[in-house]
Write a protein that binds this DNA or RNA. Structure first.
Lengths: 213, 213
DNA sequence: TAGATTGTTAATCGATTAACAATC
DNA sequence: TAGATTGTTAATCGATTAACAATC
């Protein structure tokens, strides 16, 4: 579980494994072979076994993998047994959408506060939080042991805010702002650039269209 | 521009190039070399040149790349000169957030309608649209030349709705539902699985923490 | 022309797939 | 024990980086 230097390609596949294993679990499937899982997920059985073996053997030869056990192990690898304290910077539509999405809470990601620069939003109730002014940010982060900041603010302010937050102990950013954060290398950044995603979609539509002409 | 079989790894980098070139353009920078761009973006100059050369030569030897020209060419490759008609299925927080994000419109992605299964939302105004019932979906898609559907509905309904939409001519899905759509191979799917993204973040926090112990 | 920088080929690196020995 | 399937090594494939000839 604590092996070093697993490639991000592998990590990127783990959540999808977890999803399929969760569904199998819900269907009371007890065991599954890499072959069966490969057919279900449309990936090669070889890749599945290689991926799992990055973390040590989860299966039994001649038998396959125990669904429950494998599920739990992958969840642990992904750190889903830990809890995290998050704040959201930017109480616009997207910030509110994320705040209201309950499934993150179930995974141990606890939203503790939401902030915005817009006075008109101060005190607005979002789930069980009230939108706070940016002036209170630093104090709040220190007092509430916040380790993850979700950035749903315009890119103009994102870089500066991120620097401030690093200064008061935030360890990771879930960055929805369309800009590259410039943070020390021990800080984790996970970007969600929605417009980039839409552009990829656009490219692929174009290509498919040309193929069919 | 119409070369075939460019890898998705390359395509995935194009929007980021476009973003940096846009910023250079805004700063009235006229030319840039792969070397300069590589320092700005923290990627190798070699990769930059390889990426661009997948689409034919955009630069001039001994000179570099003209920022404006390069910007326009990449935009064209990504199909941003085309317009698209989108609908949003699911008028929850996320659906509303996407509907209200004006930058997509500027790129030629026009939101034409928003639908929800929840009666309470019918008629609610979101930007210049009114939430419509799912019963009107098929007719609307056919009448309005919709080519992209944005799925911001729970996974339980996403697969079925996607099948219906393929049946009436939708060519692409921007899928925020946490499920793999099962559509014909000439249909484009771009997934945005937010919980997967958060799990990757979680893994990387874990790893960094162990490294520092 | 000389200098700079691309376009492109070759070398390296990493990720995926195939094969099979180990073992349950 | 025989059959099945993993764990793991080897082979292949693809992507990235390095090097340099072409050329502006």
């Amino acid at each position: 579980m604590d092996d070093k230097n697993i490639s991000q390609a592998v990590i990127g596949r783990l959540p999808r494994y977890l999803r399929y294993l969760g569904e199998l679990k819900d269907s009371n499937v007890e065991r599954i072979s890499s072959q069966e899982l490969s057919e279900l997920m449309h990936v090669t059985a070889s890749q599945i076994r290689q991926d799992f073996n990055n973390f040590g053997g989860f299966g039994q030869q001649g038998y396959g993998y125990k669904v429950n056990y494998l599920y739990d192990e992958i969840a642990k690898i992904l750190g889903l047994n830990k809890t995290h304290h998050l704040i959201i910077i930017g109480a616009g539509n997207l910030g509110q959408a994320l705040a209201n999405y309950m499934n993150f809470e179930r995974r141990g990601f606890h939203f503790k506060g939401i902030f915005d620069a817009n006075e008109a939003l101060y005190g607005k109730k979002i789930r069980d939080m009230y939108v706070q002014p940016m002036d209170d940010l630093i104090t709040f982060v220190k007092d509430n042991d916040i380790d993850i900041a979700v950035l749903t603010i315009p890119k103009a302010s994102a870089v500066k805010v991120a620097e401030q937050l690093v200064g008061c102990g935030v360890k990771a950013f879930w960055n929805f702002a369309h800009v590259d954060l410039n943070v020390p290398k021990d800080i984790v950044v996970e970007n969600v650039h929605l417009s980039d995603s839409l552009m990829k979609l656009s490219y692929n539509i174009n290509i498919k269209q040309m193929e069919n002409e």
